[in-house]
Structure formats: structure tokens, C-alpha cells
């Protein structure tokens, strides 16, 4: 990393900001703080950071509103910070354009991993039609999937699902998002379908389907493509 990437932290709690400051700068990032949503918006426009960490529980403006406003022009990853048991808020945020989420208290290891994955996903989206993930290769044009160079037989739905997730590495895709994209509107409530297909897909592409490393469940929220 020649240039330090800038991360903007929008969180009203001093202790969280301090903690993030220590953790992130120790890992080579430059940090900017904003205590309030409004100043956060200004900072985002001023510095155009590589990533934004946004707390959903801001006092002045609803975090969701900030998210929507940011997404009007900001294209880099946004990771939201929230408390446990607020799945509805998290899903809403992801649907509003957040890439990923973390619940407090979070482990710094997890935080760094997600930041890395999110930033990396930016460069990936503009690249070749073939996605490589571990021993898996996914050709988005020919719809050919190989594992350890051996051809895998996937149904068209299975491929669509895999391609959608793999193409959005570093992002958490909500159940609703996936169902809408693959099965269309009207299937938004059918988590059953999704789970069964994921289970089938795991059997085909995972080294250990019972302990998946590629198709990762974010319980109550959605799925992500891991690495």
C-alpha cells in the first residue's frame, strides 16, 4: 500500500471513535472523524474516502437518511455499525445501499477483514468476466464453473445465484435482494427457496458443505460471498 487509504468514521460516541482510530491507523489507514451525520456528509464530499464507517444510531439525523443521501453520489463502500438484534434496521440499510454491517461489540479482526473485503470489491467489479475464488473459477459469459479445474454441473438458477453472490464479493446481499434478482418480485418472502438452493449449491462448490467458506450466511439478514 503506497498511499494510505482514507476511512471516514461517522459515529457520535467518543470511545468508539477512539477505538477505531487506534485499530485502523495501526493497520495502515488514515482516519477522519465526524460526530454528526451532517458533518459526516460534508466530510464525505470533501475527502471522498475509500470507505465510510457509519453508525446507524446517530443523534441528529437517522443513519438511514445519511445513507440514502450519501448514495446519491458516493460510490465507494459503506459499512454500517449497529447494535445487536436490530436486523430490520440492518436489512433496511443494506437495501439502502450499505455494503456490509457490523454489530457492536465487534472484534477488530472482523472489522479489518470486512474493510479489506469491501475495498477490494471495488477493484473487482470493473474486471474480467471470470471470477476466481479459492479453487473455484466462475466464467460469467460462458456460464462455466470449474472447481479444481473440473467442470461443475449447475442448473441455470444455481449459476445465477452463484454469479450474483460472487459478483458482489465484499457485500452482504439481503434475502429480499437475492430473491428479487433471481426469482423476481413476488418471491420476496420465500426464504425457503433461497435456503434450499444455497444448501444445494454448497454441496456442489464447497469443500465442506457443512462448514461453508464461500457461501456465508448472515443469519436473519442475507448472504455474502466469502474468501
Amino acid at each position: 500500500m503506497l498511499e494510505k487509504e482514507t476511512i471516514l468514521v461517522i459515529d457520535d460516541e467518543l470511545q468508539i471513535r477512539r477505538l477505531l482510530d487506534i485499530t485502523l491507523s495501526a493497520n495502515g489507514y488514515r482516519i477522519i472523524h465526524a460526530e454528526r451525520g451532517k458533518s459526516g456528509l460534508v466530510d464525505a464530499a470533501t475527502f471522498n474516502p475509500a470507505l465510510i464507517l457509519l453508525d446507524l444510531g446517530l443523534p441528529d439525523i437517522d443513519g438511514q437518511e445519511i445513507l440514502v443521501k450519501l448514495r446519491e453520489w458516493y460510490t465507494n463502500p459503506i459499512i454500517i455499525l449497529s447494535v445487536r438484534d436490530s436486523e430490520t434496521d440492518i436489512i433496511k440499510a443494506l437495501d439502502n445501499g450499505a455494503n456490509d454491517y457490523l454489530t457492536k461489540p465487534f472484534r477488530s479482526g472482523e472489522l479489518l477483514a470486512r474493510i479489506r473485503a469491501s475495498i477490494r470489491s471495488v477493484s473487482i467489479t470493473n474486471e474480467s468476466p471470470v471470477i476466481i475464488a479459492g479453487n473455484l473459477s466462475i466464467d460469467l459469459i460462458s456460464h462455466v464453473v470449474r472447481k479444481n479445474n473440473e467442470l461443475l454441473k449447475l442448473t441455470s438458477t444455481e449459476f445465477a445465484l452463484l454469479a450474483l453472490l460472487a459478483g458482489n464479493e465484499g457485500r452482504v446481499l439481503t434475502h429480499q435482494f437475492i430473491l428479487n434478482k433471481i426469482w423476481g418480485h413476488g418471491y420476496a418472502e420465500q426464504t425457503q427457496y433461497l435456503r434450499v438452493f444455497i444448501a444445494q449449491l454448497r454441496k456442489k462448490i464447497e469443500d465442506n458443505p457443512a462448514k461453508p467458506t464461500l457461501l456465508i450466511t448472515e443469519s436473519g439478514i442475507g448472504y455474502r460471498f466469502g474468501d
Binding site: 426464504t191 435456503r195 444455497i198 461453508p212 450466511t217 443469519s219 436473519g220
Partner: peptide, 14 residues
Amino acid sequence: LRADWHDINDLINK
């Protein structure tokens, strides 16, 4: 209760 369909593997892994 917010019940939904789940793969029991997911629960155990988590």
C-alpha cells in the same frame, strides 16, 4: 418469536 426457515448447519456453525 421471529421464526423463519433455516439450515440447521448455519445455526451450529454460528
